[in-house]
Design a protein around this nucleic acid. Structure first.
Length: 717
DNA sequence: CCCGTGGACGCCCCA
DNA sequence: CGTCCACGGG
């Protein structure tokens, strides 16, 4: 039974928030400015539905933007209501569609254990299609073709419809590839990210009994970050809510930053028209930032023409002025930010309360160098991802094939990994045999002698196939983590790595061990653990989800503006605020400046107390040094509450540098391969030593860090 | 079939 | 400046 009562959870809401929570029936649009407590509204509203309206947990569908946001929401609801929260579907669009599709896939001819291809797999497949169609890969760049296909899918335009609309030779090629690409996916029993949405809409639109079942299941649907939904998601919501209309969406048009992947800001602007009878509520009180920060953010976003007027206000006082600082170049910028961070830490800020945000991932590199030298712990969100590492993808490909042998992309990936004498020529022979016979690559593998493989390759193919077959049989009565371990051993993959006897190989083994750990965690958490659902879950895991709540004194967070959405920090540094970088030159060319401005608004409103924007007068890009003008967004800042300064090198060099942190008296003597411990980063292994006292350590989480031996709290273990 | 190397090309953001 | 991929020698 619910442990909570309306009078307790309604008490900590303001009037607008309370109204949003209590409006349970019919379409509801909540325009929630940055920091206005929308998560609180969402969680309280779910709690209210369950605790006071007699709604069952299984009747609620709550859509969030990331898995991490979903987890947080679930946690908060659980703390209010107890374990009933676990039964609620709180998921991303993609995860929710994945689950629906698992049950409905047979209607479309897919099996329910379909594989989800990530971006790399998708591009690979596009490339294969281009090769098969014999199109010039110079003229038709796989990445570009893929982007076209992805856009089409977000608009729910299937291959036939696309082909019918062709207007140029380039389009024709896209259409041809699109058709072949879908056939290849289907034959592999695989879907891509966009298919999750498109196919779910397809199945609900074409099979009324399916639609009715799901619409009846989810009597209450809540959607967070509605401003970033695309057409397919909009259609999905219409299909699911058509009968009851109990759809609540929360969003902020000023924070719409995903047009490049199909998000359509009109979804939120026209919600009232699309869903007649909508009640609209605006949340304009900001509980996060001081007024100088809000004033600056408001002034910038006011320059957008396509927007609804909205003004955030806060009771948190004027606060510190916003700082705009011009530096010599990107190195000076990085040193300045590092020095400022050191100063804030002295003021009592925890490193985890500080973030540096930038437009593109590449900008983190220079900063990382300086932070390492200064001994400032940091974490980068969005660098090379765990699940994109070669060894992890290899291991997952094994699992994919064991789960779904028709998955040709994964099968090709692991066919010769580890080396078993089944090279490109043999695989090409098998592939063309499969195409000729109209069978899958997996089936062709079973008829390798007919495909005309050389004797050695034939043997390799046969033993590879029997290895997979016995793994498939074994997978039926093993836990997921056991399957992972056994597969890595029996395939010889681990053995091959061990035989390398290099530090790199050892790091890979550690990463694979981490994957086993992930599988164990999954087993503990999942209601009905299975290999299929494990793979699907992992396929939808994102970067932001990896943002860890670290311990100890914390780490400074480095992340892109996109990744910063939904987060907040006491102090925020926004770097590289220059024309060409931010707004990005390509956005300027393509008329996307308003979206860039929204991105700027998102970044600024992450700051609670201190906001610093920096730009460099010179910056090297592509190895060439260029002069950039300050960003137009800086011109749009108000006069009041903003302080501008220009720092010549001499005026601050040395400021905040080494004297903040004294070198250690005793420096450990290390050599490559030593096991070490860092007081916040944990245990790791030394992979490289440089002459100037810089050591590279690979930590247990797989991350490699360059550390100054003299300053980094490293000890040998 | 494997591995090393040099040249071309790229930096936007992502579930 | 890096990285990734294609090609050619072993």
């Amino acid at each position: 039974m619910p442990l909570t009562h309306p009078e307790t959870y309604l008490a900590d809401l303001n009037d607008a928030q309370r109204e949003a929570v209590l409006t349970t029936e019919g379409p509801l649009l909540v325009i929630a400015g940055a920091g206005s407590g929308k998560t609180r509204v969402l969680t309280h509203r779910v709690a209210h539905l369950l605790a006071a309206c007699g709604v069952e947990p299984s009747e609620v569908l709550a859509i969030t933007f990331t898995n991490k946001a979903a987890g947080e929401m679930r946690e908060r609801i659980e703390s209010m209501l107890g374990p009933v929260a676990r039964a609620i579907w709180i998921l991303t669009f993609h995860a929710a569609c994945g689950r629906i599709l698992r049950r409905e896939a047979p209607r479309l001819g897919y099996r329910s254990n379909f594989t989800i291809y990530d971006q790399a797999d998708q591009i690979r497949l596009v490339k294969q299609c281009l090769e098969e169609l014999e199109r010039d890969p110079k003229r038709f760049v796989p990445r570009g073709i893929h982007a076209q296909i992805s856009n089409a899918k977000n608009q729910l335009v299937g291959p036939e419809e696309y082909a019918a609309r062709v207007a140029s030779f380039y389009d024709q090629t896209v259409a041809d590839v699109y058709g072949l690409y879908q056939r290849r996916l289907f034959a592999s029993n695989a879907v891509d990210f966009d298919d999750l949405l498109m196919l779910t809409v397809d199945v609900l639109a074409r099979f009324p009994e399916a639609r009715e079942r799901w619409a009846k299941t989810f009597r209450y649907i809540l959607v967070d970050e509605y401003q970033d939904t695309n057409y397919a998601q909009y259609e999905l919501l219409k299909l699911l809510t058509g009968t009851h209309g109990n759809l609540m969406v929360v969003g902020d048009p000023d924070q719409s930053i995903y047009a490049f992947r199909g998000a359509d800001i009109r979804n939120i602007l026209e919600f009232e028209r699309d869903f007649p009878g909508t009640r609209s509520i605006a949340l304009e009180q900001n509980y996060r930032s001081t007024n100088h920060i809000l004033g600056a953010a408001n002034a910038v976003i006011a320059h957008n023409r396509e927007r609804k007027e909205k003004r955030l206000w806060s009771e948190l006082g004027a606060g510190e002025p916003v700082h705009v600082v011009e530096l010599e170049d990107e190195h000076a910028e990085a040193r300045f930010v590092a020095a400022e961070i050191a100063g804030l830490v002295e003021l009592g800020y925890s490193r985890r309360e500080i973030a540096v945000v930038y437009r593109t991932n590449a900008q983190s590199r220079v900063l990382e160098d300086v932070l390492v030298r200064q001994g400032i712990d940091y974490q980068v969100i969005g660098g090379p991802r765990f699940y994109e590492r070669a060894e992890i993808k290899d291991a997952l490909s094994y699992l994919q094939v064991i789960d779904n042998p028709y998955d040709a992309v994964s099968l090709l990936r692991i066919a010769n990994r580890p080396r078993r004498g089944l090279g490109d020529t043999s695989l090409a022979r098998l592939q063309s045999f499969a195409d000729g016979e109209g069978i899958s690559l997996w089936e062709a593998l079973g008829r390798a002698e007919e495909a005309g493989l050389a004797l050695a390759s034939l043997r390799a193919a046969q033993s590879f196939r029997s290895l997979l077959q016995s793994s498939m049989a074994g997978a039926l009565d093993m836990t997921v983590s056991e399957v992972v371990e056994r597969t890595l051993e029996r395939s010889g993959y681990l053995e091959a790595l061990e035989a390398e006897r290099t530090i790199e190989a050892r790091g890979r083994i550690e990463n694979l061990e981490e994957l086993v750990g992930v599988a164990r965690e999954y087993e503990d958490a999942a209601e009905e653990p299975s290999l299929s659902s494990f793979l699907q879950e992992v396929s939808l895991y994102s970067d932001q989800d990896a943002l860890r709540d670290d311990d100890g004194s914390g780490q400074v967070t480095l992340l892109t503006l996109h990744n910063a959405k939904g987060l907040e920090f006491r102090a925020v540094f926004m770097i590289g605020v220059e024309e060409g970088i931010f707004p990005h030159s390509r956005s300027v060319e393509e008329g996307g400046v308003e979206e860039e401005r929204r991105l700027c608004y998102v970044g600024m409103t992450r700051a609670k107390e201190r906001l610093t924007l920096t730009h460099a007068s010179r910056r090297s890009l592509y190895g060439r040094s260029d002069a950039n003008l300050p960003s137009r967004f800086l011109d749009e800042l108000p006069r009041e509450g903003v302080e501008r300064e220009r720092l010549a090198p001499a005026s601050w060099s040395g400021y905040g540098a080494r004297r903040e942190i004294a070198p250690r008296a005793e420096v450990p003597v290390l050599s490559t391969g030593d096991n070490v411990r860092h007081h916040t980063l944990g245990a790791g292994i030394v992979t490289r030593i440089e002459a100037d006292g810089v050591v590279t350590v690979r930590f247990e989480d797989g991350a490699e860090r360059r550390l100054m031996l003299e300053y980094a709290p490293l000890e040998r273990i």
